[in-house]
Design a protein around this nucleic acid. Structure first.
Lengths: 234, 234
DNA sequence: GCCGGGCAAGTTGTCGACAATCGTACAAGT
DNA sequence: ACTTGTACGATTGTCGACAACTTGCCCGGC
């Protein structure tokens, strides 16, 4: 799979109109939701969106159905499409699902002999987080956090875990944007990510899973800003 | 949610067209794929399907996009939609993802105080499996197996895990249908499911996860052993 | 003053038709 | 005989328009 023809560089000669219009539109809307352009609960008018994106209502509706299938949009018949608003139960659910997916990805990664590239990518994400934290740029910090976990799952090489993770990370961003965390304790956040990377590098699976679960539980309590419910039994 | 008004029976007065046409069509196609009506690799013509389902191409395309998002269909521009064919790597990936999801569901369930209803449902599925095994009905056995794992995840109460599980179980059925397992060692299969139920009933999390992982690994080797060469029957 | 019926506006759901594209088969040239 | 060019058939991608539904408001009646 990797490096079949050394003379052909990545994405140089293979594709021209690789993806369908619906997929492109879906990516746009997904990014907009993640970015917070469409806050939870807002109605997405079809004609308006279609005109804004320069496509007709047909492809746009196809893209919408895709997002509905992912759980990002809520469809009410003859009423319209709305961005799903997440309550406390949803926040917990997102993070339990993320824990499941990222734990599995970490285990896959730990079973691999050469974890060098993965560690390098995670380190790059951590570096970006450090820079963002130093600059006080909360959105860049969230971006880097996002990248860290996305890279972790992507490096596992599992297409299904990757697909699940993408949606879950978007929902994570929705949680963060909706609840507007004001002052994230970025030092703890950085330390947790560094520990995750180090555990992966050294191959300490027990530490990895434990820190990962704690990391998720921390995030939930941080978002909900309530007393963390009794943690999962070890 | 359960038993709000005792006078209203389930699905008697509330809904008439609760779900969108695209969702219904998507369910139909998904069931057909799962059932094996559309073997992997077959092309799904839009006009033919639309006429057969009594809808226009619009709603049908929306449903297709939904299934593409789930990874059950593969879309090639200006070529058509094809049922995804799963190779050995996909089989392993499906089961790693399933392991992740069902392990998380089991842990959620173990954290719940009252596991009685869940155990009862799993027992019902096991009973169905026993009956199917006794009758030598392999398809009913696969149905019951499907139900067991679906109930396990559904009982966890996590909508996201549930949604992921649904797609993964369909893909599992695709693996089974494609490779046509001839004589499943149903006794081992039953024993494994009984152990899972008992571990859930007694609250033995360590046993539960261990047996679950072994169960998945067994299934993978069982499927791949039938057809060791992943060579496509070209 | 309150309730029920009816009207109007705006939205989504659905359909049919046109245009663009790809695969295949056949013919011509080298 | 192999390659190249071309025409055809079939399918998908896209668009615009009509129909159905829901919602909110206004008005008449009790």
């Amino acid at each position: 799979m990797a490096g079949s023809s050394p003379e052909i560089r990545m994405g140089e000669l293979e594709p021209i109109d690789r993806r369908s219009t619906a997929a492109i539109v879906a990516d746009r809307i997904r990014a907009a939701i993640m970015r917070g352009t469409f806050p939870p609960g807002t109605q997405l008018g079809e004609v308006d969106l279609a005109a804004r994106l320069g496509v007709s209502r047909g492809p746009l509706r196809e893209a919408m159905q895709r997002l509905v299938a992912e759980g990002l949009l809520r469809s009410e018949r003859h009423r319209g499409l709305f961005v799903r608003d997440l309550d406390a139960a949803d926040v917990r659910d997102v993070y339990t699902a993320r824990t499941a997916v990222e734990r599995a990805a970490a285990l896959l990664l730990l079973a691999e002999p050469d974890r060098g590239p993965a560690v390098a990518r995670l380190t790059a994400a951590i570096t970006a987080m450090e820079a963002a934290a130093a600059a006080g740029d909360t959105v860049a910090l969230a971006d880097a956090d996002h990248d860290f976990h996305a890279e972790l799952v992507a490096a596992s090489g599992s297409p299904r875990l990757h697909r699940m993770s993408r949606t879950l990370l978007v929902e994570t961003r929705m949680c963060l944007a909706a609840l507007q965390q004001t002052a994230p304790p970025s030092e703890d956040l950085l330390a947790e990510h560094r520990t995750l990377r180090d555990a992966l590098a050294t191959g300490d699976g027990v530490l990895m899973t434990r820190v990962l679960e704690a990391h998720m539980a921390d995030a939930v309590s941080r978002i909900l800003d309530v007393a963390p419910p009794p943690a999962l039994p070890a």
